[in-house]
Amino acid sequence: MNGFYQFLSGLGYSHPIHPTQINMPIGLAIGAFILGIAAVIRSDAAVGAKQMVLLAFLFIFPTVAAGFLDWWHFYGGAWVYPFGIKVGLGILLLVLLLAALLLGRRGKGISVAFLGVMLLAFVDAVALGYFGGEVVFGQQAPDAPEHRVGETVFRYNCSGCHPFGGNHIAPRHPVIGAHVIGNPESLTAWIRSPAPPMPAFPPARISDDRARELSAYFGAVWGKGQERGEGQEGHGHGDMGGGGHQ
């Protein structure tokens, strides 16, 4: 699995792959609901609605596969918020689309039951989009007006597994108190080659300049960290291993 992501990184792509897939089933499910409503006025829209349901159903499978790969690679398979909610909503959407497919086989038009199921699928798709946004934007970072660049780097790359300087995956290894956060060179070296399961952040993802901004942000909101050897019991020898990725 790591080889696959290393291959993508070599091509200049260092982001998760799930976000490139999720737009298809969500967009198609919403489109099918809208066309289903339109079919009440124009019967020819019913064919398009049913076809979009079929496509949404088919696209769920590669989307789920991509999500699993990202979850395992970037989060070490940790069951952190809001992945459980997203999994539940994804299963529900799959069931609703399957029900809509079966209902769509009954006659040429659009039934009330079909519209009801697609309304639920529409709400489910919106909720999936919301909780997908929570993965990226929901884990808030402490405010530091004078270090907006570093705050943005933290929010988009680190806050999912390190909300407010903690560590969802390895609680004994928080950012707060880690010796590397106060030294730009040490922090840059760490994010380039961290301890598993924290993924590496190549320059294409976080440049050296952005790493320095991140270090300055850490210093502003959590101090300069501890020197190596201090606070070892609570901070895993000052490292913040087990971090994640947005």
Score class of each variant (00 low, 15 high):
101 L>G: 08
30 I>R: 00
55 L>P: 15
14 S>D: 13
79 W>L: 04
16 P>M: 03
25 P>V: 02
88 G>H: 00
52 M>C: 06
15 H>M: 07
78 A>T: 05
87 V>I: 10
9 S>F: 06
76 G>F: 09
15 H>Y: 10
96 L>N: 10
35 L>A: 03
59 F>D: 07
30 I>F: 00
17 I>G: 09
111 S>D: 12
41 I>G: 14
14 S>G: 13
42 R>F: 08
81 Y>Q: 09
48 G>M: 01
125 A>K: 07
102 L>Y: 09
42 R>I: 06
32 A>H: 02
117 V>D: 00
65 A>N: 14
80 V>K: 12
102 L>N: 15
70 D>C: 09
90 G>R: 07
25 P>W: 01
122 F>T: 08
41 I>N: 15
69 L>E: 12
108 K>D: 15
63 T>R: 01
41 I>S: 14
39 A>M: 03
45 A>Y: 13
122 F>I: 05
86 K>Q: 14
24 M>Y: 13
62 P>S: 04
40 V>E: 12
76 G>W: 10
48 G>C: 01
38 A>V: 07
43 S>Q: 14
107 G>P: 13
33 F>R: 12
40 V>G: 10
114 F>W: 14
71 W>L: 03
19 P>S: 04
120 L>N: 08
60 I>V: 13
107 G>K: 06
73 H>A: 04
66 A>T: 02
29 A>F: 00
22 I>F: 04
60 I>A: 09
43 S>K: 15
112 V>N: 14
34 I>K: 07
84 G>L: 01
75 Y>T: 11
80 V>G: 09
58 L>Q: 08
130 Y>F: 14
44 D>L: 02
12 G>D: 04
40 V>H: 11
64 V>H: 11
12 G>M: 02
35 L>S: 02
66 A>M: 03
108 K>E: 13
26 I>Y: 00
102 L>A: 09
116 G>K: 01
126 V>Y: 11
37 I>P: 02
125 A>N: 07
7 F>D: 11
81 Y>G: 07
64 V>W: 07
111 S>R: 05
107 G>N: 10
30 I>C: 00
100 A>P: 08
63 T>Q: 00
78 A>Y: 05
100 A>N: 03
94 L>F: 13
34 I>V: 15
91 I>P: 14
97 L>N: 07
44 D>A: 05
24 M>G: 10
113 A>L: 07
99 A>P: 15
51 Q>E: 12
38 A>I: 06
23 N>L: 08
52 M>K: 06
127 A>P: 10
90 G>V: 04
107 G>T: 03
44 D>H: 14
21 Q>A: 10
87 V>A: 06
59 F>A: 11
110 I>N: 03
12 G>I: 03
54 L>A: 09
66 A>I: 02
104 G>V: 02
18 H>L: 00
54 L>C: 08
104 G>I: 02
35 L>M: 06
39 A>R: 08
106 R>Y: 07
112 V>C: 09
33 F>H: 11
34 I>G: 04
29 A>I: 04
89 L>C: 00
85 I>E: 14
21 Q>G: 11
19 P>F: 06
47 V>Y: 12
105 R>K: 15
36 G>L: 01
89 L>S: 00
129 G>P: 13
102 L>E: 12
9 S>C: 05
110 I>K: 02
93 L>A: 06
129 G>H: 05
29 A>H: 01
19 P>G: 07
29 A>C: 04
40 V>Y: 10
